[in-house]
Design a protein around this nucleic acid. Structure first.
Lengths: 338, 338
DNA sequence: AGGCGAGTCTACAACGATGTAGGATGGCCG
DNA sequence: CGGCCATCCTACATCGTTGTAGACTCGCCT
């Protein structure tokens, strides 16, 4: 049986509360008392019972992270960054997988199991802007991702439009004029696809390059196979293009594979850029140019903001929006003379 | 403020304990009492305080999972499987990253923060068999991976030797006779590298193919870049080979990239097989043959066994070893006529 | 000398749930 | 009719911690 404050108090010949005070670094304790308590603690191998502590204090020191799936590399790397950021702030992370399913996401927002945590970092995929009301919850919540904007909570996201514009501008600067897109979503306005497509069109417009809807490859999911399928359809459609903007790296990698099978050289015949800066793109053949969306900054900001909300629960701070800084990363897949 | 049992009891006009009994499905409650309590519960939006419950019951319903890093795809996919397996059993998962660092791993085994969990699934990378004693801990612990065998706890692992033998035999069946290995560890006997290399040698021996140490590419880490570097060294050494066994998929993918840069055709000049069945290998060019080590089975077994140990803490069941079933998956990278 | 404040420590209640023991009711048996 | 059991419910203690209030000592000021 684990030792409790009571055991330590008995061993040190002081009251329970004094031991508690020692543990919590209370100022006014005589040096020798402190000494005796410390010895008793280490002798009994005492360590505080966190359930009791959180019952009393209302805090658990654990935050929840809800993501679609860890087997999607982007979310695995995001979770990695978030766990590290949380560790720096003395927090643990409990991960919940939603499968990107709207019903499951809504369920998590009302699940009592979340009481085990002090707050939630929430990255929905199935919910959309009309569901924003569901984010009105009684616990601290920080929203991630690009599915919902202007909701009732703090929101940490990447600069989708600007960075997609930069990615497109990068391809344009290499002399490409017919830039295909892989991963577009029919009629979407917000959401990663909608926003990035908007950046794409802005860049075209700025460069005076006409927009050709035939260059858009639609695909709902963003797995590798979808990138491959979408690219196959573009090739079959016969539309001409000299570059591909994969709306994420996974799509771009799938598309690259099909391009190579079809005998197109990258970057000579077709330049390619992705989005996310997955580790994988660093080792593909060719290595994949991409957008670094500032994942560590997103993780750090999200955890910091959530912790602020947890610490200062009644503060009437209105919801805030944060956008991480991004970078264009040029690798082999777009390394044209320029 | 969240409602408590007390509030519900007041609203329903019963005692606190009766409400508790309703919640815990106690048998002897009059139908109309139950009804009234249920109504009060839903009216007040009551949900139990898990800290209080776990203080009283000694259970949290959370298990810990310690892995090196989620940005390593294998561990991300393992975590995914484990979270799903835990969910099926009503458990939540708290993830801890060790960075594969021995000191950090040892620290986790003695950290009081683990009190927030009922038990731990532990996948060390820095610890070795000599550290087995450190696994003698006072909480339920299930060991994963291939760093420590014969330790004092239950252990769930893959059939490293057998499946590596099968992978090698697969290449041999395709007519390959000079099979290079990427990812070997100098002098290692157990550990993924040591075990898989043993399987490799067994298969050679069975086929009467001589073992040539010059075919071994050494590299401590198993990232993509290490596979690439190791392959580059093999090529520079001038040793001849007609196949490559990457001790994991990541290494194999890195090696494939270098082979292709060097103008070797896969599988025609060099057949390649990996190990892990990462999603990524399904979409590489060419697609990567590999070993499916039975990840879901590992996850499911690990969670089940841990839960048994949690439920039955004093049972004197001796430590058990579990090996998941594996499968050879042939894809393009080894698709020779055979 | 009396009073005041700072320093050190303790007793007790409280967080919200569950286990234990036992009280009240009613039906059934002998 | 008395006794017994099953059913239904309640009061109280308890898990291990922390917040509150206050006791006591000591030195210093007036």
């Amino acid at each position: 049986m684990a030792a409790t404050l009571k055991d330590v108090a008995l061993a040190a010949g002081v009251s329970i509360k004094t031991v508690s005070n020692v543990i919590n670094d209370y100022q006014h304790i005589r040096a020798d008392t402190k000494q005796r308590v410390m010895e008793a603690i280490s002798e009994l191998g005492y360590s505080p019972n966190l359930s009791a502590r959180s019952l009393r204090s209302g805090r658990t020191g654990v935050i929840g992270l809800a993501v679609p799936e860890l087997s999607l590399s982007y979310f695995a790397e995001l979770a990695d960054s978030i766990i590290k950021a949380a560790e720096r702030r003395g927090l643990k992370v409990l991960i919940e997988q939603t499968g990107g399913d709207r019903a499951h996401e809504l369920e998590i927002l009302s699940s009592p199991r979340l009481q085990m945590t002090d707050g939630l970092l929430f990255s929905p995929l199935g919910m959309s802007n009309e569901d924003a009301d569901h984010l009105n919850v009684s616990f601290p919540l920080v929203l991630l991702g690009e599915r919902i904007f202007g909701g009732p909570t703090d929101h940490v996201t990447m600069s989708n439009v600007e960075s997609a514009r930069a990615a497109t501008a990068h391809l344009l600067s290499k002399g490409c004029r017919r830039i295909a897109v892989v991963g577009a979503h029919e009629g979407e306005v917000i959401g990663s696809a909608g926003l990035r497509l908007r950046g794409y069109r802005q860049a075209l417009e700025e460069a005076g390059v006409p927009f050709d809807p035939r260059l858009l490859g639609y695909t709902t999911l963003w797995h590798r196979s979808n990138g491959a399928t979408s690219m196959r359809q573009l090739l079959e459609s016969g539309v001409e293009f000299d570059a591909v903007f994969g709306l994420n790296d996974t799509l771009a990698l799938g598309a690259m594979r099909v391009l190579q099978e079809a005998g197109r050289r990258i970057p000579d015949d077709v330049a390619v850029i992705g989005f996310d800066d997955l580790d994988e793109g660093r080792y593909s053949l060719p290595t994949l140019s991409t957008i670094d969306p500032g994942r560590d900054e997103i993780a750090d900001t999200a955890v910091r903001v959530l912790q602020e909300r947890i610490t200062n629960r009644e503060g009437n701070v209105p919801p805030r929006e944060f956008e991480a800084r991004f970078h264009v990363i040029e690798r082999e897949s777009s390394a044209l003379p320029g």
